[in-house]
Design a binder for these strands. Structure first.
Length: 801
RNA sequence: GCGGGUGUGGCGGAAUUGGCAGACGCGCCAGACUUAGGAUCUGGUGUCCUCGACGUGCAGGUUCAAGUCCUGUCACCCGCACCA
């Protein structure tokens, strides 16, 4: 047999698939549908990363297997092409982002095709195309219409380097998601989507889907629902009500002070009656200088200032208590004010110690002279609550009392905040809103969509965080759609997550001009059966897109509340040095190089064989060669091919076992062990020295989803048919067992011998054989046998005294 | 600090969920074929060693039997982070 010419063969089959549209999904087919989704790439100028290959290879294998099993598979790909890196390249090189994007998409397309992914290329989408973002804008208008869009001037996350406002999700860790600069807080009026309105639905929806447990948990934590109570404290000096949120209303008798955020409006309202207003202003100014990051990260000591002129009254016992400002209370969570219970809250305890405030124990069980006690226990010093010995009952009782007094009620809070939904940049979807001096914010009429991004020469953002679009008079100046008067267009664009929040719907019907997708297509394909992607998207894209989908469900635009029935995540590929791949470390592996040196099949097999799919693993060039060797040996089997349309007796169990193992492992995403099983089978075959037709056909079928080119080539060369048109191989559970098996024989738990027994032998027979073994007889004879254990097909243990 | 995860040969990783630890691959060693090998093939390869002892981060425990279960502890990774 000649050496395997992977370059020629891979090209040949890629052309074949393209010509025959082998992977085209047919909407409405009577076959059972399977919708496999991978996260579409952002087409950066660097081209594909081996991480993309791993991310797509998982469901690629599943999709190919499903097609062989007779499913109608939708496995689409597209490009999430709006975003800052492209715009930054455009600015730097003086090329229009449209051209940069098209160039990058072409590059990605070529690379993806060279790897032989079985995407349905007839459904490719590009979020920056007018016929796509028309519908992104349409969804925005629907959100607007339904009161889920608002503008607000508050402190926002701002990246001074990118000159944009970022959402909470894009500012995780206090760093800009795009350029990793330190985020600062800035007061600015921006657009928000009321995602918090959907917090409960997003939380409850998790019960109806099958996400990996850690994915689910991260979403739950991000949404961060807490239940507690709102309580109103009166201010002695002016009768004002100071509203707080607490999860521990049961500890109300233990309140010895209150803390409000430095920005709390009550200070402004009563600044004239506060004696030490200068000190408060100074403290506030100091806090404003710190970034959110410093304010939370670098906590060494509690700081704060007592407000001289505001005294609160505890509604439960009428006690007068001091009010402080401190930066450990945030304006952005709850009401920006807390009741402090130093005996039972660690932060309040630290603060009280530092400022010499009373600490009153209301729950027994700890030693409050040493530290705050946050556990459960019997209530003390708490009036009518005394004697109640658990938190739940105490909270309930307290809520009753508060309700009677009319100064408190049950409440719910979320960590998740509303979605800051705009960027002061050019390369994004224009927000289809007109500002009219008469009518206020007026949506662009649906029949005027898409609101096109105007051509410009200068994409630089303005100095004070103004969008480049603001400089284009012909875009900005318009007529109000409502009253016809002079008006101005909104000039901010949508954030990069907009387009990806609904792209999986568009794949169902990518060219529809009447709707984001036809009802029939959505009915047929949705929900996505299996979605795989990166962990980094769990608290961004996955939250956003679920929110949009729930909303679209509520307005009847889609047929299920949840978009994704199942979600998994792949682990990173690290550099050969075990570090995260990055250009600055110079440890980046280019998939192109691997394809050119070893072939696409080798790359595909390697990224799945390198380790547990869900775990990070370092790249190893020599292990890549091992995969090359494996495929070359599969090729070389053609020299050992003999006749035979059924598995030979000595191969039967091995074949059935391998088919079972590979079939099951693919479903469980245990691709590494699936490949190992095929390697083991290959070793068995090489040991025998020959393979018959039936065996070869099955082995090629098992390997086909992983290495489609080489398997197709061997199959068509030897069997004159197209492998991917054959049905997936099946196995018979009963034939998976060998006729005889080796079991270990232990005496007192130590292995002393190994014996061959018929695999269906029962315990007495096996023990008989074991005791007659020369190595065992000597150890057992003349001793008292205390216990005899036989684990079927595994081992025998004889306990003697 | 809270939440989650991981810890197994020289390396990546397996282990039917309590049943022969180290599958499979890499690397390494030896041999074969070669002018040559960073190609291919064959054999070997956890550690210490003479027999048989020790081995899954560490220390205990349960069990006929523990990588797997329990208690404690250490290290590293990821996520959130003064969330009231």
């Amino acid at each position: 047999m000649e050496r395997y010419d992977f370059a020629a063969v891979e090209k040949k089959w890629q052309d074949y698939w393209e010509k025959h549209e082998s992977f085209k999904a047919v909407t409405g087919s009577p076959k059972k549908k399977f919708y496999a989704l991978v996260e579409f790439p952002y087409p950066s100028g660097h081209g594909m990363h081996v991480g993309h290959i791993k991310a797509y290879s998982g469901l690629e294998v599943v999709s190919r297997k499903r097609r062989l099993e007779g499913y109608n598979v939708l496995f689409p790909i597209g490009f999430d092409a709006y975003g800052l890196p492209t715009e930054n390249t455009a600015i730097k090189d003086g090329i229009h982002p449209r051209i940069v994007t098209d160039r990058n998409i072409e590059k990605f397309t070529n690379q993806l095709k060279k790897v032989g992914f079985s995407f349905d290329w007839s459904r490719v989408i590009d979020t920056t195309q007018e016929n796509y973002y028309k519908w992104t804008q349409w969804i925005f208008l629907k959100l607007f219409e339904n009161g889920l869009v608002f503008r607000d001037k508050t402190l926002v996350n701002y990246c001074p380097s990118c000159k944009v406002v970022l959402s909470n999700e894009d500012s995780q860790g206090g760093k800009c998601d795009v350029c990793h600069s330190e985020i600062i807080q800035k007061s600015k009026e921006v657009w928000y989507l009321r995602i918090t309105e959907y917090a409960d639905k997003l939380l409850e929806g998790l019960d109806t889907v099958n996400y990996l447990p850690n994915i689910r948990l991260q979403q739950e934590n991000w949404i961060g629902k807490s239940t507690g109570a709102f309580v109103e404290f009166s201010i002695k000096e002016n009768g004002e009500k100071l509203r707080i949120y607490t999860t521990r209303p049961d500890t109300l008798y233990g309140v010895t002070f209150m803390v409000i955020a430095p920005e709390h409006p009550i200070i402004e309202k009563y600044r004239d009656s506060i004696a030490n207003i200068d000190a408060l202003d100074a403290y506030k100014a100091e806090c404003a200088k710190k970034s959110e990051f410093e304010r939370t990260q670098l906590v060494k000591d509690k700081t704060g200032v007592k407000i001289d002129g505001l005294t609160a009254i505890n509604p439960i016992n009428g006690k007068e208590i001091p009010v402080y400002i401190s930066d450990y209370v945030m304006m952005g969570y709850g009401t920006g004010a807390i009741m402090a219970v130093p005996a039972h809250d660690t932060r309040d305890y630290e603060f009280a110690k530092k400022f010499g405030i009373d600490i009153i124990e209301v729950i027994k069980g700890g030693d409050i002279s040493k530290e705050a006690y946050t556990g459960d226990g019997e209530m003390v010093n708490s009036g009518v609550l005394n004697g109640i010995d658990n938190k739940k009952d105490a909270i309930e009782k307290m809520l009753e009392i508060l309700a009677e007094k009319g100064c408190g009620e049950k409440g719910v809070q979320y960590k998740m905040k509303d979605w800051a939904f705009n960027r002061q940049r050019y390369w994004g979807e224009p927000i289809p809103i007109v500002h009219c001096p008469e009518c206020g914010m007026v949506p662009v009429p649906y029949d005027e969509l898409p609101l096109k991004l105007p051509p410009v020469d200068n994409f630089e953002p303005g100095q004070d965080g103004e969008s480049p679009l603001a400089k284009i008079d012909s875009f900005v100046n318009c007529k109000c759609p409502k009253c016809g008067g002079d008006a101005k267009r909104e000039t901010d664009t949508m954030p990069q997550w907009a387009g990806s929040s609904w792209y999986f719907l568009r794949y169902c019907d990518p060219n529809n001009d009447e709707a984001l997708a036809s009802k029939e297509a959505l009915e047929y394909w949705m929900p996505v059966d299996w979605y795989n992607g990166g962990m980094e998207h769990v608290t961004r894209h996955m939250i956003y897109s679920r929110f949009w989908h729930h909303f679209l469900y509520d307005i009847g635009a889609v047929n299920t509340p949840e978009p994704y029935a199942k979600r998994t995540a792949q682990g990173l590929i690290l550099g050969p040095d075990g570090e995260k791949m990055s250009k600055s470390k110079g440890n980046v592996v280019d998939p192109n190089d691997v394809v050119e040196t070893y072939g696409a099949d080798v790359l595909r097999v390697y990224v799945l064989f390198m380790g547990d799919y869900e775990q990070a693993a370092p790249w190893s060039e020599s292990s890549v060669k091992g995969c090359k060797r494996f495929l070359d040996r599969i090729w070389a089997l053609q020299d050992k091919l003999i006749d035979g349309d059924e598995y030979r007796p000595e191969m039967t169990a091995a074949m059935h076992k391998t088919i079972k193992k590979v079939s099951e492992d693919i479903e469980a995403m245990k691709f590494n062990t699936a490949i190992a099983a095929m390697m083991t089978l290959l070793n068995t075959i090489d040991g025998i020295g020959s393979i018959n037709k039936a065996e070869y056909k099955s082995l090629l079928m098992l390997l086909n989803p992983f290495a489609p080119h080489i398997t197709e080539e061997i199959y068509s060369n030897n069997f004159g048919a197209i492998l991917s048109e054959q049905p997936w191989v099946t196995y018979d559970e009963a034939l998976c067992v060998e006729s005889s098996v080796e079991v270990a024989v232990q005496v007192n738990g130590k292995i002393k011998a190994k014996i061959m027994i018929p695999s269906d032998a029962e315990q007495p027979e096996v023990l008989e054989i074991a005791k007659n073994d020369p190595n065992i007889a000597g150890l057992v004879n003349g001793k008292t046998i205390v216990k005899e254990i036989y684990v079927k097909g595994r081992l025998v243990n004889i306990v003697v005294k």
